[in-house]
């Protein structure tokens, strides 16, 4: 397992949302402003990395029969810690994400990685797997937010960026974002649940298109030298 390969898998070829098709509830529900997306993505990244490390560290001492129950307890523990810390230090994010922070417990990404990866790999590999899978998830959230916010209300970086008194980042979710075109011309339907379904559907379709294309190219590249050989013969 080398890090480069893990990086590519987490972000592209085995992206949790776009390829493994898991953890979609939150992806569609909270991606209305960049603030929510980045906050949710980073929360999942932290929880996933911690859980991966702990699960792979204790993988040899836990009995096989109750491993799922133990995974769930470990995950719920970390989720509660992040939940409490958010409530204490970034209350705006906690209020915006609401019930979706505790619901990270049942996010298939985390239990899926614990079951499929950390059980069989070392602590180090699991740590990087957590970071890269988390990054892959965060990237998808960010793309969803940017697309929905831009087309829906003509903004970029809502909640996270404030430009009223010069450019600055707001961590309390109060920033109005950069208005690119007047909100009245936006397709506000993209801010509704409908927009979540459609945007994610198109993103996955785009991913399938790209993967299929790169696969075809590879096959052609493999085929090409053979054809040349034939011609020579």
């Amino acid at each position: 397992m080398n890090i480069k390969k893990q990086f590519k898998e987490g972000l592209i070829t085995n992206n949790p949302v776009l390829v493994q098709l898991i953890g979609m509830c939150a992806t569609m529900a909270i991606t209305t402003t960049l603030f929510n997306g980045v906050g949710m993505g980073l929360s999942v990244l932290v929880i996933l990395t911690c859980c991966n490390v702990v699960v792979s560290a204790i993988r040899k001492i836990i009995p096989d029969e109750i491993r799922l129950a133990i995974f769930v307890v470990v995950i719920a523990g970390f989720v509660t810690i992040v939940d409490l810390l958010l409530q204490a230090f970034i209350p705006a994010l906690s209020a915006a994400l609401g019930v979706f922070i505790p619901l990270i417990v049942v996010n298939c990404i985390i239990i899926g990685r614990a079951e499929a990866f950390c059980q069989k790999n070392t602590v180090g590999a699991s740590f990087f797997d957590g970071i890269f899978q988390g990054l892959g998830y965060t990237c998808v959230l960010i793309v969803m937010c940017v697309v929905r916010e831009f087309l829906g209300s003509g903004r970029f970086g809502g909640g996270l960026i404030d430009v009223t008194n010069g450019f600055r980042f707001t961590l309390d979710g109060t920033g109005g974002g950069i208005q690119i075109f007047p909100a009245d011309y936006g397709a506000s339907i993209l801010n509704l649940p409908f927009g979540g379904f459609i945007t994610l559907g198109c993103l996955i379709a785009l991913m399938q298109f790209a993967l299929k294309r790169s696969k075809k190219k590879k096959e052609e590249a493999e085929k090409a030298p053979q054809d040349e050989e034939k011609e020579v013969a």
């Binding site: 409908f194 379904f197 459609i198 559907g201 198109c202 996955i204 399938q208 298109f209």
Partner: peptide, 23 residues
């Protein structure tokens, strides 16, 4: 439907339309 929409994407799009109806 377009080939790339095979599987999940077309489902998500139709679920979106249902969500629109529920609005």
């Amino acid at each position: 439907y377009p080939e790339s929409f095979e599987g999940f994407p077309i489902c998500l799009v139709s679920a979106g339309l249902l969500a629109l109806a529920f609005m």
